[in-house]
Design a protein around this nucleic acid. Structure first.
Lengths: 349, 349
DNA sequence: TGTTCATATGGAAGCGCTTACATTATTTGA
DNA sequence: TCAAATAATGTAAGCGCTTCCATATGAACA
């Protein structure tokens, strides 16, 4: 059906411009060996004919396709959306297109399959938090295929990656709570098979210990980054003999669950319990009370990762490195001094 | 760098299976003319060799690429995310991959360019709310390229499309407010160059007139679907001699702006002013008070559109049709009877 | 047993491009 | 001025596949 349309090819341009198609190809690829006038003439012809290079053929013939692949685990959360925006805006500047793969789709098939597919389609791959990282990075590295990891606190392996300082972010958030006067701080973890989740837990623990506050196991609830975990974890905390006066959820989604649970128990935020999240997804500032959270520069991460990939793509042998972007505590309305301290304050002065 | 890898081709499979590559191709394409045993043998060989067909070559040689293109205006809102999820989940079932184009990127270049690009890359196109619809649909139709429009109340042209009943949704929401007792209802429109926005405005007006409530121009504010419009519009409404007791924003984003504005004026929702949105994006139920809104079945729209496209792709001559999905009023906490009515109630009984 | 069909397979051409390599035009130096 | 070097262009092969046409293999019939 869509065959033999009025598609114009390199040959048409060549004929029209009175050169061989080889020359046209050279113009397309910015080859040195073209006389300026010829180049000019060919370019004008291309424009006049509305010629657009066929990337399939380009890639097939051994060139680049100017397409980069993006592998994401899921589209559910605003989280990925932010990252994609960064990627997209960076790509805009560079004439690359984007191929989107959701890894959950091919969960059954092995990682290798995805690559075989992607490989002859795209020039490089951006990998967001794969479910089974080693699988992917292993295959990728072995095939020497250009790629950059996003938000993946790696398996020690030094491959190009951009992430955020999860540890520092969690540390700061916890420390902030402690400074407010909180001593009993509940922590809800993410999926602990993810480096980011571990780092956040570590940051929390370290902050507690630094301030000589014991880390109690019944104030740590193991979640999976999903909203219901926040709810369940909170319920559990509330049943502890001496419930926490603050809850730190490993991401904003779970923090929303925390808020719901607290509210359902007739308690007020932040008066009775303070809540902190992680990520700073768009709705964090929209909920009431506005959520205090640790901001991850998601969009910037996407942007940076793209830049890195593009660099690898051009500068064939740029050494792999890992960039860690700073996180930032966004103090909003869901945190306050614990009641006891507030009371004290009122009495003392 | 990534040339001459251990990539295995159709020829490798052929050799290994002791048939010609033509036969292998036939197996791949489910051609009738292959002896069952041969087919079986070839398939096993493919599996053993981890063969994955090269879609570029496939497409280039005149076949399908099993990739469909998705054109979206932007990734900003959760809105698109929801749609993509639907598309993705449907695609999962059908072994197609997804190519993502953001049209804002190529705003400068004409629509035709995008297609020339997409055309030899993908088998069909899903188009979400393009900025300049006619441009796109025109080119598309002319080239007889398979496509489906999503959430685009078209230009009369009957091309395959799936949308939601914007008119009905707006009508119902408005009527609900009226039934609650509201008489002065502010309406904030979307970009009126979009059919969906017009339909919503129409639904509002019709509901008002049906109930014999005059439509007043100073209770209609022309927005663009962006959050700040909600804020600005509300400020304007509040300065009207007799301000509205309810505000209906044409989408949830703007409703968030409305909420902020009301709050900044020291008024309470829904006690002083009721608020209704449109879309039911994820955070609608997360904000406080939870937003009453008109739910668009975004994910389902994505899913349906994909099904339609896939059908067009297989069943070459299925006639184009437009599907309209019902919208649904989600009553939550941002709407209530107006004060006057509440007062009456307390007095009368 | 030899003819016909249908059925199954092999092989060539070509999709639009890149990239050697071959060829021709142009410059430079003596 | 002419050879030698260099710049510019043309050409063929091939990327991995589909598809059409040709050939080979049987089965069915006379």
């Amino acid at each position: 059906m869509n065959k033999r349309q009025n598609k114009i090819t390199i040959v048409d341009v060549a004929t029209e411009a009175n050169v061989s198609f080889g020359t046209v190809s050279r113009v397309i690829n910015n080859d040195i060996h073209v006389k300026p006038e010829t180049r000019e003439r060919v370019q004008q012809t291309m424009e006049r004919l509305n010629y657009v290079v066929n990337r399939q053929a380009q890639k097939l013939a051994g060139g680049r396709s100017n397409v980069i692949g993006l592998l994401v685990p899921d589209l559910g959360t605003g989280y990925i959306g932010e990252i994609i925006r960064g990627i997209d805006s960076e790509l805009t500047l560079s004439d690359y297109d984007l191929m989107l793969y959701t890894t959950h789709r091919t969960a059954s098939k092995e990682a290798g399959y995805v690559f075989s597919l992607a490989q002859d389609m795209v020039d490089g791959i951006l990998l967001v938090l794969p479910r089974n990282p080693v699988d992917y990075t292993g295959t990728l590295a072995k095939k020497k295929f250009p790629f950059v990891l996003i938000d993946h606190q790696g398996t020690g392996k030094d491959c190009p990656a951009v992430g955020a300082s999860n540890w520092q972010g969690a540390f700061n958030a916890t420390d902030y709570l402690i400074q407010l006067g909180h001593k009993r701080i509940g922590f809800i973890t993410g999926s602990l098979d993810l480096g980011a989740a571990i780092d956040r837990l570590d940051g929390y623990k370290t902050a507690m210990r630094t301030r000589h506050i014991p880390v109690e196991s019944d104030l740590i609830y193991e979640g999976t980054f999903a909203q219901p975990d926040g709810y369940t974890g909170t319920i559990q905390f509330l049943n502890v003999e001496q419930p926490p006066t603050a809850i730190f959820a490993s991401n904003d989604c779970m923090a929303m669950g925390v808020i719901d649970a607290i509210r359902d128990h007739g308690l007020k935020i932040p008066d009775d319990i303070s809540v902190i999240g992680f990520d700073d997804i768009p709705q964090a500032s929209l909920v009431r009370p506005a959520l205090t959270t640790v901001q991850q520069p998601l969009e910037q991460m996407g942007r940076l990762a793209t830049q890195m990939l593009l660099e690898i793509l051009t500068d064939t042998d740029s050494k792999p490195h890992r960039i860690e972007l700073p996180t930032q505590l966004m103090i909003r309305d869901s945190t306050a001094k614990p009641k006891a301290v507030q009371a004290n304050r009122e009495v003392i002065p």
